[in-house]
């Protein structure tokens, strides 16, 4: 199974291949768990969401469309939805602080110049961390906490227009980094 790519594993999973499923889990569980933990801030809840995510993958593997993105992106999209659902069901907000030190685990990943997908994502991650705090804060509240711009304005006691401006400015900065990567 180790020599099969994600797409081949997904095809096998669709036909009920348990070993293919576990291979895909071994390959991507650390990314799924990390994103769940990033959103939820609680290892126990992240554990549950990771399991739920892979169960959904198992049950929906025939819905994957390669034209819409890679398997890992699809998997992480499911993770984000599942984690945000979890947050809403518990009506809680995780801590919003996040430090750059967490990126240490990516230091051994090939640099952006290698043009691998993950290296581009790594560049994106560090670009987010490099944004001015007010821009980064708004983007993280929206994406990782599932808040609307109105809710962010209320949370941060900022005018709605300020939130929109900072969010847009932050995303445009990221876009420039992305285009270079």
């Amino acid at each position: 199974m180790l020599n099969l790519d994600d797409l081949e594993l997904i095809q096998r999973i669709s036909s009920g291949d348990e070993n293919a499923f576990l291979s895909l889990y071994d390959r991507h569980a650390s990314h799924v768990f990390a994103l769940a933990l990033r959103i939820l801030g609680d290892p126990g809840a992240a554990d549950e969401v990771t399991q739920d995510t892979f169960l959904k993958l198992w049950k929906r593997s025939d819905h994957y469309q390669a034209a819409l993105g890679t398997v890992i992106t699809w998997l992480l999209t499911i993770t984000r939805h599942t984690a945000l659902d979890h947050l809403r069901s518990e009506a809680r907000r995780p801590p919003i602080t996040h430090s750059l030190e967490d990126g240490d685990q990516w230091l051994d990943i090939p640099a952006a110049e290698s043009a691998t997908e993950e290296s581009r994502w790594r560049s994106m991650y560090f670009a987010v961390q490099s944004l001015p705090d007010d821009q980064r804060h708004v983007i993280e509240l929206a994406y990782y906490h599932g808040l609307s711009q109105s809710e962010i304005a209320e949370e941060l006691k900022w005018p709605l227009g300020t939130v929109k401006t900072r969010l847009r400015a932050g995303m445009e900065s990221l876009r420039r980094v992305w285009n270079k990567a």
Partner: peptide, 22 residues
């Protein structure tokens, strides 16, 4: 671009997770 935000530094899940999932 937003898909890029899905990628955060990988973290090893609990060792028991694989068995529980299986």
């Amino acid at each position: 671009l937003s898909q890029g935000l899905l990628f955060v530094p990988p973290q090893k899940p609990p060792a028991s997770q694989r068995d529980a999932l299986r």
